[in-house]
Design a binder for these strands. Structure first.
Length: 950
RNA sequence: GCUCUGGUGGUGGAAUGGUAGACACGAGGGACUUAAAAUCCCUUGCCCGCAAGGGCGUGUGGGUUCAAGUCCCACCCGGAGUACCA
């Protein structure tokens, strides 16, 4: 019987579903249908980044990571683990809403449709997902807990002393007792007040103060406003001044928005990277994004109004003797106060200009120097020198204090500014002790943190590192500054002026945001008749008729009923895409729970994700948010591990491989085969659909049918074939290089697709999709199948068992290190060898089926049952390598002379160095290369190599 | 600019300091067949040579080592991240 994948694959997929083969229980969890499985099995959690179900469906790049994780999940299960391997959908998002604006189709409808399509595609590939645990971020039963977490964030603040989140009530108690005295908490701006002041304030004032501390807070902040999307965006959603989604321009704008005080967790987010098993490059991406830098905060007083001073941050306190000017960012609040009357117009003009520039203009003109003198002077606290204060947009409002001390000799930006405005440049660091030169002759500043201080008072002669410490000590002693750490990481803007997202469980009572009672969650997304902003510029929820909170009856009511007595307006923004994806991995542990986010037993059992697989593009977004979310849930006692993802693998992007035909410029109907193109100037390359090209050979008939304008195309063929050119590009519709997995499953079967995706190369590496090799993998499966046609119960020969155990060893090692491409090769080698040996012994083939099961589950399940088993191969036992079968009597030694390999020699495994040399001397080849000389040195590595140095 | 990656046949890739190119694809040749599909066999890094054999080869140049694709230094090229972060 032939290998009939198209019959066998759907049959087993049904069987798995009917038998609930992929259903997973939490140990001892009585809420599960079968009362829980209290097995002593160790647990293992394998997770894929869940997909956003786009309208285009899956292409061949999406399942790459899913296949890898599925192999590992199945492998772990065969090794006796209780494996959690769930899947769901990141179902809220911009594209569905943009589509709704264009077509009027409700996002819920398109999302539902897209999910169905994704599911259909996923099912065909034979994954071992436990679909009973599916989550969708747009499902009220799910987003109830997203909203709930938001409320907890709203109700907590971050206590730096305790280094964790604590309830707001505790903060209120602190204020009532001692004001801000003794408080070290993360906040938007430093506040100082007494208990008496606090106790005297009314509820509105108190709520404003508390807002300064809440982990989810409402504040006027500079946000990334994208007019085309009609919403604000988080920093990681903007690249180069354009929105990641859609590529629309983004500008800075001061707006009142919800934010998450993720910066409070910056240090823990850095520290946590030490505990996880991620690639160095990904950890580096996160470290860069968090951008921790150590330095000093120093107060500089004004020279004429010494009661006014302002704080700067510097990483180079050692260069304080080289400060020749100060710079404030255009948004700095002191500008108004300090600018001298005669400079006022000029400064205000500059500030207005700088503030109105778009992000993109600013970034595009980084090299251009601009700025203006305020007329005011500061005093260098260490030198008592009077130094001018400038305003320039190269100082950013969002970092540090928005003010700097400029040391042009040792900072390239300050250097450029000084050169432009003709400001003095003073050298205070030199590479060689005491050796200086005239900075006027320099072409660039000396930025390196190495060398020695010069011209620097009491630190002159010290090494830079020592000088830094000495200056900080001095500043602290003088009480004008202190050692400090700054982070680049900004708080995450959490509002979106959008429809298709989680509504905030917040209503406004006299302008004061109030949380909905937790028992009233979820606050369901209302219906609107228009997905665009309202005429007055409100977000789409402004169109909702029933969108007000009745405090008394605790329910959502019609907007007309708003009286600001018992019925109040609800928040009109919705949450961003990362809200729902930040904690989904925890929900999978206990997806049906309607009392809690997830049960204590469930999280106690599964702990955290052992293996997380997904794209590296989430390095600065999702992976930061999720870690933050998890740490917060850890602080409030829900999560049990501080880091959510123990090990993480980034699957490489699959690029498209485009094919081209070459149209003659002289004859618009003539297409020249690639080998016959003399010069690319004579032809126009045209993208051609890869589905009508096979091994770079064009199907000319299909090409004529492909598009009407090619109906009577003529071809210049080589060897009777039209050969196409190719190039690696992004996989996209417009390049006609999108490969749909369904087509391949139909043609070769899911097992072939799975093996082929793995065979393509290392999972983590980016690689072009090229269908050319898929035949080889398919041939292998047919060969493997044929081995079973000669199935016999005879006992296997030693040599046959050796092949088996070599394979067991190699596959086990390679799966452990996620080297799935070499696993496929190993299977091929094994099948080739056994075919040559004509080995159909059950003793050999049965364990082999188990080894294959994670990779090609359908064929494995079929053969497993043909071998007489009733249970699924998923629950078989992973074979163990027995080293006894691997011992060799003889070893084929490569023999090197002076490090160059010359020939090989078969020697007994027990051979000693002297015996080996004697044997080599006895051989004609040995004599030839010895050339009558005696070895000066011999390196003999038993069972590896012999190197003779002459 | 900075950080991280990667650079090996015609192609995808293998090689965890020890025979570079496993395993595949493609290409060439052959067997079976009326023919095709399927299957099987041989050749296939480059150069010299009929062959036996030899030389050269992992981006470039140095180095460490008995031995380097692998480790170290410098440089060149591609990809990704980030970008006035004081």
């Amino acid at each position: 019987m032939d290998y009939n994948f198209s019959e066998l694959e759907p049959r087993w997929q049904n069987w798995w579903r009917e038998h609930g083969v992929y259903h997973v229980d939490n140990a001892g969890d009585a809420s599960r249908p079968n009362g829980g499985n209290a097995s002593p099995k160790p647990h293992y959690y394998v997770l894929d980044m869940f997909p956003y179900p786009s309208g285009a469906g899956l292409h061949v790049g999406h399942p790459l990571g899913y296949i890898a994780s599925d192999i590992y999940a199945r492998y772990k299960r065969l090794r006796g683990y209780n494996v959690l391997h769930p899947m769901g959908y990141d179902a809220y998002g911009l594209p569905a809403e943009q589509y709704a604006i264009q077509t009027g189709q409700h996002p819920a409808v398109t999302t539902e449709k897209n999910i169905a399509r994704y599911r259909e595609q996923l099912d065909k590939i034979g994954f071992s997902f436990d679909w009973d645990r599916e989550v969708r971020t747009c499902d009220p039963k799910y987003y109830k807990w997203t909203q709930w977490t938001f409320l907890q964030l709203f109700k907590h603040y971050y206590d730096n002393t305790a280094a964790k989140a604590l309830p707001i009530a505790q903060l209120e108690a602190h204020f009532a007792k001692q004001g801000t005295e003794g408080l070290d908490a993360a906040c938007t701006e430093e506040m100082h007040f007494t208990a008496a002041e606090w106790n005297g304030w009314d509820a509105v004032k108190r709520s404003q103060v508390l807002m300064n501390y809440r982990l989810a807070y409402l504040a006027d902040t500079y946000v990334n406003w994208c007019a085309d999307l009609g919403t604000v965006l988080a920093n990681d959603e903007v690249v180069g001044g354009l929105s990641v989604r859609g590529g629309y321009p983004v500008e800075r704008k001061l707006m009142r928005q919800w934010s998450l005080r993720i910066s409070a967790y910056a240090q823990r987010l850095v520290d946590g990277l030490e505990q996880v098993d991620w690639t160095d490059s990904l950890k580096e991406i996160q470290r860069n994004w968090i951008g921790r830098s150590e330095g000093a905060a120093v107060w500089f007083p004004l020279s004429d109004k010494s009661d006014i001073s302002f704080e700067i941050f510097t990483t180079r306190p050692d260069t304080i003797f080289g400060v020749t000017f100060m710079v404030l960012c255009p948004e700095h609040e002191l500008i108004e106060q300090i600018t001298t009357p005669e400079k006022r117009d000029e400064v205000m003009q500059y500030v207005t200009w700088a503030k109105n520039r778009s992000e993109r203009e600013r970034q595009a003109e980084v090299k251009k120097v601009s700025g203006v003198f305020t007329g005011a002077f500061a005093v260098n606290p260490l030198t008592e020198e009077k130094i001018p204060i400038y305003v320039s947009d190269y100082v950013l409002a969002g970092y540090g204090t928005g003010a700097i001390m400029a040391v042009p000799a040792h900072d390239s930006r300050d250097f450029a500014f000084a050169r432009h405005f003709n400001l003095p440049i003073r050298q205070v660091v030199s590479l060689e002790k005491g050796v200086t030169s005239d900075p006027a002759t320099w072409s660039e500043s000396l930025d390196a943190k190495t060398g020695y201080s010069v011209n620097s008072g009491f630190v002159s002669g010290m090494k830079v590192k020592e000088a830094m410490a000495a200056v900080i000590d001095k500043i602290e002693e003088m009480g004008i500054g202190h050692r400090t750490v700054n982070y680049r990481l900004r708080d995450a803007i959490f509002s979106r002026q959008r429809y298709w997202g989680e509504p905030f469980p917040i209503y406004y009572k006299g302008g004061v945001p109030c949380p909905l009672p937790e028992e009233c969650l979820p606050l369901e997304l209302p219906e609107v008749d228009d997905f665009k902003p309202t005429a007055t510029g409100e977000p789409p929820l402004g169109h909702a008729k029933k969108w007000a909170w009745d405090e008394k009856n605790r329910c959502v009511v019609e907007k007309e009923k708003i009286d600001d007595v018992t019925v109040f307006p609800l928040e009109l923004s919705t949450m961003p895409g990362f809200a729902g994806s930040s904690g989904y991995y925890l929900r999978y542990m206990d997806p049906g729970n309607d009392k809690e986010y997830f049960g204590k037993d469930a999280v106690g059992y599964w702990q955290n994700v052992d293996l997380y697989v997904g794209g590296a593009e989430h390095g600065t977004g999702h992976l930061i948010y999720a870690r933050f979310w998890n740490k917060f849930l850890y602080d409030i006692g829900l999560a049990v591990k501080e880091e959510p993802f123990q090990k993480l693998i980034n699957q490489g992007m699959i690029q498209g491989r485009s094919n081209f035909v070459y149209r003659s410029k002289a004859d618009n109907n003539l297409f020249v085969s690639k080998g016959l193109v003399k010069s690319m100037d004579d032809v126009t390359p045209i993208h051609v659909d890869i589905n009508i090209v096979d091994n770079d050979v064009l199907d000319v008939e299909k090409f004529r049918q492909w598009r009407p304008e090619f109906a009577d195309a003529r071809f210049e063929l080589e060897d009777g074939k039209y050969v196409c050119g190719w190039e690696v590009e992004k996989m996209s519709k417009s390049m006609y290089n999108v490969q749909n997995p369904d087509d391949l499953v139909a043609r070769y079967g899911a097992d072939t697709l799975r093996l082929y995706e793995m065979f393509l190369g290392p999972v983590e590496q980016a690689k072009p999709w090229d269908t050319n090799g898929i035949e080889g993998v398919h041939r292998f499966l047919k060969k493997f199948w044929r081995l079973f046609e000669g199935l016999s119960d005879e006992s296997a020969a030693k040599e046959e068992l050796k092949v088996l155990h070599q394979t067991i060893k190699k596959i086990t090692d390679d799966v452990e290190r996620f080297s799935f491409n070499t696993c496929v090769s190993t299977f091929m080698i094994c099948a080739n060898t056994l075919t040559d040996m004509k080995c159909g012994k059950r003793e050999v083939l049965e364990p082999l089926v188990v080894l294959m099961a994670p990779f090609a589950p359908h064929i494995a399940e079929e053969l497993w049952h043909q071998l007489g088993h009733e249970e699924s191969v998923c629950d078989a036992q992973w074979p163990v390598c027995d080293d006894r079968y691997l011992v060799e009597d003889t070893v084929k030694y490569p023999v090197q002379f002076n490090g160059k390999m010359r020939f090989t020699v078969d020697l007994p495994a027990t051979c000693t160095q002297d015996e080996a040399i004697a044997a080599i001397k006895a051989m004609p080849e040995g004599q030839k290369w010895m050339d009558g000389k005696e070895p000066r040195k011999v390196i003999f590595v038993p069972k590896k190599i012999i190197n003779i140095v002459l």
